[in-house]
């Protein structure tokens, strides 16, 4: 049971938090290199996300030097994931009414779990394919970590442009600990 990465998107479609626990080589078999087998958390930093620079494939930026094997940067991954969940969610709603929301999807290599709050915050978790449904986990991350440590933090802004105010220490530690309990 492995958890690859975790994303939060706000109601302005902006990615406000990224966390990766393993290099995602496992579900991108084409890429070969990169330090493997180590925990390498990569957190989101503000720059470069909103800028609309050219093709996604060619873009690289300071926070994430271009990776070997044509891999996308962390931010571009986030953009793609947003595109996928946004489209899927809208399609699902068109098909079966506004109450419905998609919960997860699976490919041959990974599984994507999705939870959206009524305030349009979107929580996404990528795991290996054998993982059970983690919607409850995402809900708990929202209730016990996001609301407690980000929303209720008086110093954190209401809107998190560039992820500002989300990656506070209490949230990070809580998230890390919580994810660890699921992986074991």
């Amino acid at each position: 049971m492995t958890i690859y990465s975790f994303y939060i998107f706000d109601r302005h479609c902006e990615c406000i938090y990224i966390k990766q626990w393993h290099q995602q080589d496992k579900f991108r078999p084409t890429s070969s290199a990169g330090p493997s087998g180590t925990d390498s958390p990569a957190s989101l930093t503000g720059d470069g996300k909103r800028s609309s620079a050219g093709s996604t494939l060619l873009r690289s930026n300071d926070t994430n030097p271009s990776r070997p094997g044509g891999r996308l940067s962390v931010q571009d991954d986030a953009k793609l994931i947003f595109g996928v969940v946004f489209s899927l969610r809208n399609m699902v709603r068109k098909l079966s009414g506004p109450e419905d929301s998609f919960i997860s999807y699976r490919t041959g290599a990974y599984k994507l779990h999705y939870y959206e709050t009524p305030t349009n915050l979107k929580f996404v978790l990528l795991t290996d394919v054998k993982m059970n449904n983690l919607r409850v986990v995402l809900h708990q991350i929202y209730v016990n970590l996001y609301v407690e440590f980000v929303v209720k933090n008086p110093l954190s802004p209401v809107e998190h442009h560039g992820g500002e105010g989300v990656a506070v220490e209490l949230f990070e530690m809580g998230l890390d600990g919580f994810i660890r309990t699921i992986q074991d």
Binding site: P98, P118, T119, Y142, V147, V151, V158
Partner: peptide, 15 residues
């Protein structure tokens, strides 16, 4: 703006 998140977290209400 913030209270709504606490409200949703505590009550688990949907839309």
């Amino acid at each position: 703006l913030r209270l709504i998140e606490d409200f949703l977290a505590k009550t688990n209400m949907g839309k």
